[in-house]
Amino acid sequence: MKPNAVLLVALLVVSAGLLAAGCTAPDGDATPTATETVTTPTGTPAVTETGNVTTAATIATGGPGATFAIAADNLAFDTSTITVPAEANVTITFENRDDGIPHNIAVYTNASAIEEIFVGETITGPDQTTYTFTAPEEPGTYFFRCDVHPQQMTGDFIVE
């Protein structure tokens, strides 16, 4: 085997070991804790919590895009913070779990909801849809909500 091939095999073995080690908690338990911090490929931290706690969206990015899932359940989003790279091609898989109740996701420049960035189609649950749009160029904290329930279903849309 050539020296470069030996080095490559050694790196792959070490990488596989590191990945396997990261799959369990420090005590060896694979059960997620109440709060886990997930780092996306772009290095953006995304916090996920279990239970009925409002959480931050887990984002998986691959190049110039950001893809994630968000759900509406019991007149609330399961996510209170969405973080994406500036000018990312955003894809949201939106699941409305509320039977017979309409919801959507809309992103605005701020909580006044006067200037829209994106307004998704309203769907009546249970149903699912996919939204795609481009994140703002300017980093900052924007605002997202359900236009049908604008007071109770809101969150921060953070562009980095």
Rank of each mutant, 00 (worst) to 15 (best):
M1I: 12
N4E: 15
V9S: 02
A10E: 11
L12F: 15
S15M: 13
S15H: 00
G17N: 02
A20T: 11
C23Y: 04
C23M: 14
T24S: 13
A25P: 06
D27N: 15
D27V: 05
G28I: 05
G28R: 10
T31L: 08
T31V: 12
P32G: 03
T33I: 09
T35L: 03
T39K: 10
T39G: 03
T39S: 06
T39P: 09
P41F: 09
P41E: 09
G43W: 06
T44D: 09
T44H: 07
T48V: 15
E49G: 08
G51L: 01
T54P: 04
T55Q: 10
A57K: 03
T58P: 02
T58M: 13
I59L: 14
A60Y: 11
A60M: 12
T61V: 11
G63W: 12
P64Q: 13
G65V: 05
A66K: 00
A69V: 06
A71F: 09
D73P: 04
N74D: 14
N74G: 13
N74V: 00
A76W: 07
F77K: 09
T79D: 03
V90L: 01
V90C: 05
F94N: 02
E95Q: 14
N96E: 13
N96Y: 04
D98R: 08
D99I: 08
I101E: 10
I101K: 01
I101W: 03
P102V: 06
N104Y: 12
Y108T: 04
N110H: 01
A111P: 04
A111M: 07
A113P: 05
F118G: 02
F118P: 08
F118N: 04
G120V: 07
E121C: 01
T122Q: 11
T124I: 03
T124C: 01
P126A: 02
D127S: 15
Q128Y: 04
T130F: 09
G140L: 06
T141P: 07
Y142G: 01
Y142F: 06
F143C: 00
F143L: 04
D147P: 06
D147E: 13
V148A: 12
H149N: 12
H149I: 06
Q152D: 14
F157K: 10
